[in-house]
Structure formats: C-alpha cells, structure tokens
Write a protein that binds this DNA or RNA. Structure first.
Lengths: 180, 180
DNA sequence: TTAATTATGTAGCAAGTGCTACATTTTTGT
DNA sequence: ACAAAAATGTAGCACTTGCTACATAATTAA
C-alpha cells in the first residue's frame, strides 16, 4: 500500500498538468495515460472508471488553484479596487489556464453533466468565499459584493476568451466612473 | 437548383433546432442527420465538410437570436435598469437555450478552435452592439457601458448555469446599492 | 427525348472512445 | 520462503467519429 499510493499521486499530478494545459476535451483515457507515462489499463486500475478519475483530477486542480490564490492574497481592499486586481490576476500566465478550464467546466456543468456540475458548484463557492475574504466591507455588504465580484470577473474572463481586451478596458473605465 | 436549395434550408433549420436543444456536444453528423430526417451522407452532399456545416448552422442560430432580441427590444433605458432587464431576458425559456449554447461556444473559442472562435467573436460584437442600442446615455458613455453590461450579463449567465440564483440576486442588490 | 446534373442509398474504412478478459510479473505481509 | 495481493502487459470488443467509394434513381436543361 506504500508504493502504489505514491505512484498514483505521481500519475495524478501529471494528468492534472495535462488537463490544465490541454483542456477537458483532450482528456481521453489514452491521452491521459500517455501524458502520465502509463497505460489506460493502469488508469482503470487506480480508478474505478473515468468519472472517478475526472473527479479526483479536477478536485486536485481545484486545490492547486486555491493554493495559488492564497499565495497571491493581499490584505482586504475596497470593492472598486478588487475588480481590477482580480483582472490582473486572471491575466497572469500561471492562473490563465485555470480560467480557461473553468470555462470548459461551466459549459458542461450547465447541462448538469456529472461530475462536472458538482465540481463546478464547489469551485464556484470557493471563489465567492475567496472574494468575500478580500473585500474590505462589513459582513452584510460582503454578502452582496462577493457574488458581484465573481460575476464581473467571470464576465471579463469570457470577453478575454475571445480577445476582447479593448472592450474589457472600456468596461473597467465605465466601472470606475460609477463609483463616484 | 430549386428543390435542392429549399431542402437544404429545411434540413438546416432542423439541425439548428437540434443543436439549440442538445448542444454542440451532440452535434455529430449522424445525430444531426437523424434530427433532420436525412443521412450523414446527405449532409456531406450539401456541405463540404463538418466545419462548413457548423459555420452555417451556428450562423443561422445566431441570426435567429438576433431576431428574437429585436422583438424583445424596448426603448433605451438607463444602465442600472438595463442589467435587471437583461437578466429577465436570459431567464426566458425561449432565450435560455441560446445562452447555454453561448457558454459552450465560448469554451471552444477560448482555445481558438475554428469555426467557433470566429463565430463567437461575431456574436460577441452583435451583443455589445445590441446593449449599446438599449442604453440611454451619450455615445462616449455607451462605449464604456455596453461592454460592462455584456460582462455582467455573461457573468450572471455563468452563475445561472450552476444554479446560483441566490448569489445572483444578492449581487443585483449590491449592484443597485452602488448606483447611489 | 436525351444527356448531363443532382439526389440518395448502401457499405465501409481508419481512427478514437471507455472498458474488459486473461494472463504474468512484482511487491508485500507473514 | 511462501502465499496473498497488487501492478502491469497484451488483445480485444462494441461503439462512435468524420468521411469516402461506388452505385442507382430522380430531376433538369438541351
């Protein structure tokens, strides 16, 4: 039970990296196996089926993202500064692959496809929680501003996906105009 | 050239309906053919390949959406009223399938996958244009508020995909607080 | 009417999918 | 050292994918 668990962890990390780089679409057992230096046969030895595999891999990816976000944490800042700050964050090359994967996850989750739907909900909650911790405001306000932050950042991520940066910048101008 | 063109149009409409209901994932030639009451063989008779087919079908779907939006048009209203109005619109059962498809489109577009990337850009521009026409403001402000509206509505659509309505409503409260 | 064009059917290929059966080697606990 | 358990290899199945070859029937243009 020693060597096996370790090997599984190794393999899982490589699969997570591969999914993060190449997306859910290239997540067939065979290509995952190749990326992890093993065979599809072995993957189904470590995991009961593909759904279990994806659940564990995506959970790990999600945990990795949380770690990254924790490291990039600042002291709580006002809402109007938080949005541009998070925009910078999701443009960061380290974070960007996660956002791209998030878009894929949402697309599948919107059809209630498992395990994607459950995982997406979990990640969504984590991110709202994260926003909440970063906002400088009282609790009642946080409860409104955290989801609002999440919404705006997600919307920005979508525009970014189709290379609409000029529009994003215009929108951010409009956003800060509004704070007056 | 008479009967053929007509039949193609018929088939294309049925395919559009099918894609709208079942998403891009269920867009194999065989399932599209079945939905259209023909064979994959015939689809490749009318279209050079799958990419051409998808381009035409998605363009048609996009045109249909524009028509629906035009019919739901109001007189220009202020920005802070427009967002809730558009939220109601995307919850409309007629519109919702389009939004769901849009999420799928964005996921593929974010990888620059064709023809999805090009079509997504085109639809994105249409929607920003549509927002712009609905905002009651001067031109300079419109240029900022239209993309901002688009961002917020898209963000809301994503939360909606994972059934986060309570969070959406909280966010909208926060949003209207801000207008003061 | 005849010749050319267009429409449609039937079969199949090569590649990819998740997964399984059956075997053998390797590791582990005793 | 030995038996139980875990790891790994090799083949394959049944299915889906986009697409093609080869044929025949229907329509259109002359």
């Amino acid at each position: 039970m020693k060597k096996g668990e370790l090997r599984k962890q190794e393999i899982q990390e490589k699969m997570a990296k591969h999914i993060l780089t190449n997306g859910l679409q290239s997540g067939s057992l065979r290509s995952l196996a190749q990326a992890a230096g093993t065979s599809d046969r072995m993957l189904l030895h470590y995991y009961q089926d593909k759904e279990e595999l994806m659940t564990e891999v995506l959970t790990q990816i999600s945990d990795n993202l949380i770690t990254i976000l924790e490291q990039a944490r600042t002291v709580p800042i006002p809402f109007n500064q938080l949005v541009p700050h998070l925009y910078q964050l999701i443009k960061n090359p380290v974070v960007k692959p996660y956002i791209q994967l998030w878009l894929e996850l949402i697309a599948r989750a919107s059809k209630k496809e498992e395990p994607y739907y459950s995982i997406a909900k979990q990640i969504g909650n984590s991110f709202i929680q994260y926003c909440s911790e970063l906002i400088q405001a009282d609790d009642e306000e946080k409860e409104k501003l955290a989801p609002l932050t999440f919404i705006i950042v997600e919307g920005i991520a979508m525009l970014d996906a189709i290379d609409f940066e000029p529009n994003i910048n215009k929108a951010l101008e409009g956003f800060s105009d509004f704070q007056k």
